[in-house]
Nucleic acid binder design. Sequence first.
DNA 1: CGATTTCAATAACGTATGTTACATTGCACA
DNA 2: TGTGCAATGTAACATACGTTATTGAAATCG
Lengths: 255, 255
Amino acid sequence: MSLASLVRKLERFVRLSPVDHAILNRASTERVRHFGPRVDIVREGEKPKDVHLILSGWAYRYKQLEDGRRQVVSFFLPGDICDVNVFILREMDHSIGTITAVSVADLSREFFEKVAAGHPRVVTAFWWETLVNAAIQREWTMSLGQRTALERMAHLLCEIWLRLRLAGLTQRDSCDFPLTQGDLADATGLSKVHVNRTLQELRAEGLIVLKGKTLAVPNLDRLMRAGLFNPNYLHMDHEGRQLDAVPVSPDAVAG
Amino acid sequence: MSLASLVRKLERFVRLSPVDHAILNRASTERVRHFGPRVDIVREGEKPKDVHLILSGWAYRYKQLEDGRRQVVSFFLPGDICDVNVFILREMDHSIGTITAVSVADLSREFFEKVAAGHPRVVTAFWWETLVNAAIQREWTMSLGQRTALERMAHLLCEIWLRLRLAGLTQRDSCDFPLTQGDLADATGLSKVHVNRTLQELRAEGLIVLKGKTLAVPNLDRLMRAGLFNPNYLHMDHEGRQLDAVPVSPDAVAG
DNA sequence: CGATTTCAATAACGTATGTTACATTGCACA
DNA sequence: TGTGCAATGTAACATACGTTATTGAAATCG
């Protein structure tokens, strides 16, 4: 229920001024909405009105075919911005639904205009967010096209783990993990049964401990190897760090 | 070898002023490079320097696993811009290679700064380009995760067809089509053999005529139905058309 | 313009993953 | 504090697609 995750994430990449912080803070407290778990925030076909900033909880973006086949195309974790500047499009080409209870800040067109006019660092940070999201989507294409079920699952878990860590939402080697096997099936393009088999296999190899709604990753390196995971696409490091002398936090990502 | 395709595409979405035209024209003639077919323009791991505008020819973006598995994650057709503002990232997470001979205009950081400062219509147009590319990537995720081989292939062909048409590169019901079955395999996540089988099936049903390096689509509607193709994700129509009274060209997309 | 490589086509066979069905566990809510 | 529904787990069986191999047809090139 705060913008801490967003700021933590962006500041790894760009140094934000006090004024930048102020405008972000204002935007993320002005119009906040709360949703229960498993409800739609936005539906395909609607006119996009605001950009959504996830303050807390997990959500996903999904698409559906007429016959019901459903694909989760991305996950939204706290600190994620759904689609910078979507409102320039006439209608949504996908839906956004919640997984857990979610708090969302609605960011208006005017907010982005203000940012564009007077907050170049925030503009850069939002471009970074946009480019990283595009890179993630490409990596999913790679996963679905080339990785085996086991690799795909391991890869997805690595990605979520690192994104959560960047947002400050992991403890030691464990994290909250509200996704059901059905969710994982829709995201990986596998059947629920095969997701179950695949998770069993990852468990058997000691790569994950997944029980209830918590995930533990005892050895991230091994899980990364199992998923042929190369973190470069998350672009978690950046030149700007040196240029602007942003302090590098101790749990900087391996890579 | 011209920016006609880019302008044609963007103007369907946003009305550009003479000054906008001028800056685009200048940028696309200042630093032009020519490449032969089947060569890399950019390699994964490199520092991104310029943004590439494809003036002529076909290219693709691809990623590769250490063991050689390769996925084409997008195609670039004339008028496409590779990644608006990539240079803010430290290194490329994918490679870009040519399919045919290709002419590329290199767009500098300074160009984008100039655009941001004084050409709001172009800014909007570039955001549109960015958002549509993201939507295309999501649709590929959908295809790879949920569509069968036949649907996937039909869908891809529809997409390419419509994008070519938007760029003004189709004649009646046919177009240039330089992709090999190997390229299609890398893009659809299928094996070359199965791509062949799938194309045979599409041919047998009269949905495509593909021979040499030309593709004909005798009945786009039928091909779209075979691919469960919904063109909304290409966002080829827009509110701005009414607002700015941009003339709608006669071959406006169905859907 | 013949040599060489790439591309397309087809067949036989193998397998990763899907499907259906049902049992078990866990958790929300009465 | 059960009771019902969702989520997980497992087995038996089915299939869409992959793999390997071979051939012919087109490009490409010396």
